[in-house]
Design a protein around this nucleic acid. Sequence first.
DNA 1: TGGTACATGTAACATGTTACATGATTAG
DNA 2: CTAATCATGTAACATGTTACATGTACCA
Lengths: 186, 186
Amino acid sequence: MAREKRVEINATAASLLGFLQNEPMSGWDLTARVREIIGDFWNVTKSQIYKELKVLAERGYVVEKESGPRDKHVFGVTPSGRAAFRAWIKNRPDIPNMRLPIVLTVFFGDALPPEDMRSILEQHRAHHEERLRVYRSFPAQEGTWPYEALRMGILFQEAVLKWIDGMPEGVRPQMKTIVQKGRSRR
Amino acid sequence: MAREKRVEINATAASLLGFLQNEPMSGWDLTARVREIIGDFWNVTKSQIYKELKVLAERGYVVEKESGPRDKHVFGVTPSGRAAFRAWIKNRPDIPNMRLPIVLTVFFGDALPPEDMRSILEQHRAHHEERLRVYRSFPAQEGTWPYEALRMGILFQEAVLKWIDGMPEGVRPQMKTIVQKGRSRR
DNA sequence: TGGTACATGTAACATGTTACATGATTAG
DNA sequence: CTAATCATGTAACATGTTACATGTACCA
């Protein structure tokens, strides 16, 4: 007789339930969607999403809705999934958990030749400028909650740019925007 | 004949080397130090630090310097550890990896009664205000790299406070600073 | 003499990442 | 026909977290 261990779903899984509420999606779609919309503040990886989707399906919180072309499996939230999400979102959110290696690099800046530092800052500046551009390109639906989340994105990217632009002379990247060849990294 | 697999040290271990460069420290000291100075941008846990210290010692990057009272083991960086750190810090730092669950909560704000949201924002506001206070209490050693890192801390906390203070009427916490009983969480 | 801060560490568990494997569909 | 993109998923590995266990030293 297997012991049924009552486990809570984790934050990643819970957030997926949230994203599936209005539009059923596949793992692939979810990965793209979450990253695009809130990826800067809610880091996720494809592998983890597929894992959690499996767990959610086992618990009956999501079900396969339809199958698209290729092997696309589209999941939608069940009533119990909806309930689980609403219960989860009521919890006090954890305080931020961040890793900004660039800040560490700056903290240990003495260990780096100025030209290396400038190059690093330049690349990061381009990244954050690109993120800001993306955020600004979203339609500003003021008065909605997603807009409030977006506002944080804008404020954060602006803060980073302000930070880099306030760096000491020798290492500060030039104001001229760096033109990017490809898409932003990851 | 065991195959010697050449493994790089990871970012956490590398950062510890950095912190040990000027002052030998124990795992306990490191935990406190890293959190205090750069914990908001470089999340670490005690357990992980003890693990990595062990790895660093095995590789000869750190050695036990002295033993203090109790079971205190103080580690200092060896010349090869110094070299490893300098090599590591030259790498282009990864882009930010962040989890700000509060932003997710706001994104899904529709699922939450306004009074719950206000309470959550209030608590987070207090946290970030406290962090800002701590940063401002550090001596401002302008012109040094650690100061530049600190500047990011200040800019970030200010951005979050500005974000929360710009929330819609119904959920916005009152301007009056919330007096905290204990220390900030974790 | 009792509480708090200091101090180390492990075990069990959970989460996250990277690389790999496989194949379908679409646009040119 | 070919490259790019869409799409799923796993295996192996790495990292991170929580709870627990143990004990010391200091201070009031």
